[in-house]
Protein backbone atom coordinates (compact mmCIF):
# COMPACT_ATOMS: atom_id res chain seq x y z
CA UNK A 1 0.00 0.00 0.00
CA UNK A 2 1.61 3.21 -1.17
CA UNK A 3 0.06 5.35 1.51
CA UNK A 4 1.54 3.24 4.27
CA UNK A 5 4.94 3.21 2.61
CA UNK A 6 4.93 6.97 2.34
CA UNK A 7 3.85 7.23 5.96
CA UNK A 8 6.75 5.04 7.04
CA UNK A 9 9.17 7.04 4.90
CA UNK A 10 8.06 10.31 6.47
CA UNK A 11 8.40 8.90 9.97
CA UNK A 12 11.84 7.50 9.28
CA UNK A 13 12.92 10.74 7.62
CA UNK A 14 11.69 12.80 10.53
CA UNK A 15 13.31 10.53 13.09
CA UNK A 16 16.64 10.61 11.25
CA UNK A 17 16.48 14.37 11.00
CA UNK A 18 15.75 14.66 14.71
CA UNK A 19 18.42 12.23 15.82
CA UNK A 20 20.94 13.87 13.50
CA UNK A 21 20.04 17.28 14.86
CA UNK A 22 20.21 16.06 18.44
CA UNK A 23 23.57 14.39 17.79
CA UNK A 24 24.92 17.64 16.36
CA UNK A 25 23.62 19.57 19.35
CA UNK A 26 25.14 17.09 21.78
CA UNK A 27 28.51 17.04 20.07
CA UNK A 28 28.83 20.81 20.02
CA UNK A 29 27.57 21.01 23.59
CA UNK A 30 30.08 18.43 24.79
CA UNK A 31 32.81 20.46 23.15
CA UNK A 32 31.84 23.71 24.84
CA UNK A 33 29.92 23.12 28.01
CA UNK A 34 31.43 20.31 30.02
CA UNK A 35 33.77 21.05 32.87
CA UNK A 36 36.82 18.86 33.38
CA UNK A 37 37.80 17.93 36.88
CA UNK A 38 41.41 18.63 37.77
CA UNK A 39 43.60 18.62 40.86
CA UNK A 40 45.48 21.58 42.37
CA UNK A 41 48.72 19.99 41.16
CA UNK A 42 47.51 20.17 37.59
CA UNK A 43 46.53 23.80 38.10
CA UNK A 44 49.97 24.59 39.49
CA UNK A 45 51.56 22.90 36.50
CA UNK A 46 49.92 25.58 34.36
CA UNK A 47 48.20 23.11 32.08
CA UNK A 48 45.03 25.14 31.85
CA UNK A 49 44.25 28.18 29.84
CA UNK A 50 42.57 30.97 31.83
CA UNK A 51 38.91 31.57 31.08
CA UNK A 52 37.95 27.93 30.60
CA UNK A 53 35.37 26.46 32.98
CA UNK A 54 36.51 23.54 35.10
CA UNK A 55 36.24 21.94 38.51
CA UNK A 56 38.95 21.73 41.06
CA UNK A 57 38.74 19.68 44.22
CA UNK A 58 40.79 19.50 47.39
CA UNK A 59 40.93 20.21 51.08
CA UNK A 60 40.34 23.71 52.41
CA UNK A 61 43.72 24.81 53.80
CA UNK A 62 43.71 25.44 57.57
CA UNK A 63 43.74 29.12 58.40
CA UNK A 64 43.30 30.21 54.81
CA UNK A 65 39.66 31.26 55.01
CA UNK A 66 39.36 35.02 54.79
CA UNK A 67 35.94 36.67 54.78
CA UNK A 68 35.95 40.06 53.13
CA UNK A 69 33.58 42.83 54.11
CA UNK A 70 31.70 42.71 50.79
CA UNK A 71 30.64 39.11 51.49
CA UNK A 72 33.20 37.40 49.26
CA UNK A 73 35.41 34.68 50.63
CA UNK A 74 39.03 33.84 49.88
CA UNK A 75 40.59 30.52 50.73
CA UNK A 76 43.08 28.03 49.39
CA UNK A 77 42.50 24.48 48.20
CA UNK A 78 45.15 21.83 48.47
CA UNK A 79 45.78 18.26 47.43
CA UNK A 80 48.66 18.35 49.97
CA UNK A 81 51.17 18.82 47.15
CA UNK A 82 50.05 22.17 45.75
CA UNK A 83 47.66 24.95 46.68
CA UNK A 84 45.25 26.96 44.58
CA UNK A 85 43.90 30.33 45.79
CA UNK A 86 40.13 30.56 45.38
CA UNK A 87 37.79 33.56 45.46
CA UNK A 88 34.07 33.03 45.85
CA UNK A 89 31.23 35.53 46.06
CA UNK A 90 28.26 33.83 47.56
CA UNK A 91 26.94 31.84 50.46
CA UNK A 92 29.14 28.92 51.33
CA UNK A 93 27.60 25.48 51.77
CA UNK A 94 26.72 24.54 55.33
CA UNK A 95 29.53 22.02 55.50
CA UNK A 96 32.25 24.32 54.28
CA UNK A 97 35.04 24.51 56.84
CA UNK A 98 38.80 24.17 57.20
CA UNK A 99 40.14 20.74 56.36
CA UNK A 100 36.94 19.83 54.56
CA UNK A 101 37.07 18.26 51.11
CA UNK A 102 35.19 20.42 48.64
CA UNK A 103 34.80 20.91 44.91
CA UNK A 104 34.86 24.36 43.33
CA UNK A 105 33.62 25.08 39.84
CA UNK A 106 34.70 28.18 37.98
CA UNK A 107 37.47 29.70 35.92
CA UNK A 108 41.09 30.62 36.42
CA UNK A 109 41.83 34.32 36.03
CA UNK A 110 45.01 35.89 34.64
CA UNK A 111 46.55 36.11 38.09
CA UNK A 112 46.16 32.32 38.49
CA UNK A 113 43.41 32.83 41.09
CA UNK A 114 40.47 30.49 40.79
CA UNK A 115 37.19 32.40 40.60
CA UNK A 116 34.54 29.96 41.76
CA UNK A 117 30.97 30.29 40.62
CA UNK A 118 29.88 27.32 42.66
CA UNK A 119 31.18 25.54 45.75
CA UNK A 120 30.07 22.00 46.45
CA UNK A 121 30.50 20.27 49.78
CA UNK A 122 28.91 17.01 50.71
CA UNK A 123 26.04 17.07 53.11
CA UNK A 124 27.75 14.74 55.49
CA UNK A 125 30.87 15.55 57.41
CA UNK A 126 32.32 12.07 57.06
CA UNK A 127 31.87 11.98 53.36
CA UNK A 128 34.64 12.88 50.98
CA UNK A 129 33.67 13.81 47.43
CA UNK A 130 34.97 11.05 45.20
CA UNK A 131 36.85 13.50 42.99
CA UNK A 132 38.63 15.00 45.97
CA UNK A 133 39.56 11.58 47.33
CA UNK A 134 41.03 10.66 43.94
CA UNK A 135 43.00 13.90 43.71
CA UNK A 136 44.40 13.32 47.20
CA UNK A 137 45.27 9.75 46.33
CA UNK A 138 47.17 10.94 43.30
CA UNK A 139 49.10 13.35 45.46
CA UNK A 140 49.91 10.40 47.70
CA UNK A 141 48.12 11.57 50.80
CA UNK A 142 44.75 9.92 51.18
CA UNK A 143 44.89 6.36 52.48
CA UNK A 144 41.28 5.31 52.76
CA UNK A 145 38.82 4.56 50.09
CA UNK A 146 36.95 7.81 49.53
CA UNK A 147 33.57 6.17 49.69
CA UNK A 148 33.10 5.29 53.28
CA UNK A 149 29.50 5.27 54.41
CA UNK A 150 28.79 7.65 57.23
CA UNK A 151 27.18 5.14 59.53
CA UNK A 152 30.10 2.77 59.65
CA UNK A 153 32.92 5.09 60.48
CA UNK A 154 31.94 5.31 64.11
Amino acid sequence: MRFRKRQRLVVIGLATLLLGGAAALILTALEDTIAFFISPTEVAAGELQPGRNFRVGGLVVDGSIERLSDGTVRFALTDTAHEVPVVYAGILPDLFREGQGIVAQGTLDDGMVFRASEILAKHDENYMPKEVADALKQAGYWQHDGEEPAGETQ
Binding site: I34, A35, Q105
Partner: peptide, 30 residues
Amino acid sequence: TVLLGTLYPLALEVVGGGKISVGPPFYNAT
Protein backbone atom coordinates in the same frame (compact mmCIF):
# COMPACT_ATOMS: atom_id res chain seq x y z
CA THR B 1 20.12 13.65 25.47
CA VAL B 2 19.45 13.62 29.21
CA LEU B 3 20.51 9.98 29.39
CA LEU B 4 23.70 10.76 27.52
CA GLY B 5 24.50 13.76 29.69
CA THR B 6 23.92 11.67 32.81
CA LEU B 7 25.91 8.60 31.79
CA TYR B 8 28.67 10.19 29.69
CA PRO B 9 30.81 11.28 32.68
CA LEU B 10 30.52 7.77 34.16
CA ALA B 11 31.42 6.14 30.85
CA LEU B 12 34.32 8.50 30.24
CA GLU B 13 35.73 7.80 33.68
CA VAL B 14 35.44 4.04 33.19
CA VAL B 15 37.47 4.19 29.95
CA GLY B 16 40.00 6.51 31.62
CA GLY B 17 39.09 9.62 29.65
CA GLY B 18 39.30 11.91 32.64
CA LYS B 19 36.73 13.29 35.01
CA ILE B 20 34.19 15.73 33.75
CA SER B 21 31.01 17.26 34.96
CA VAL B 22 28.08 17.81 32.66
CA GLY B 23 26.03 20.68 34.01
CA PRO B 24 23.25 23.07 33.07
CA PRO B 25 25.08 24.56 30.04
CA PHE B 26 25.01 21.15 28.36
CA TYR B 27 21.28 20.72 28.85
CA ASN B 28 20.55 24.30 27.87
CA ALA B 29 22.33 23.60 24.59
CA THR B 30 20.68 20.24 23.90
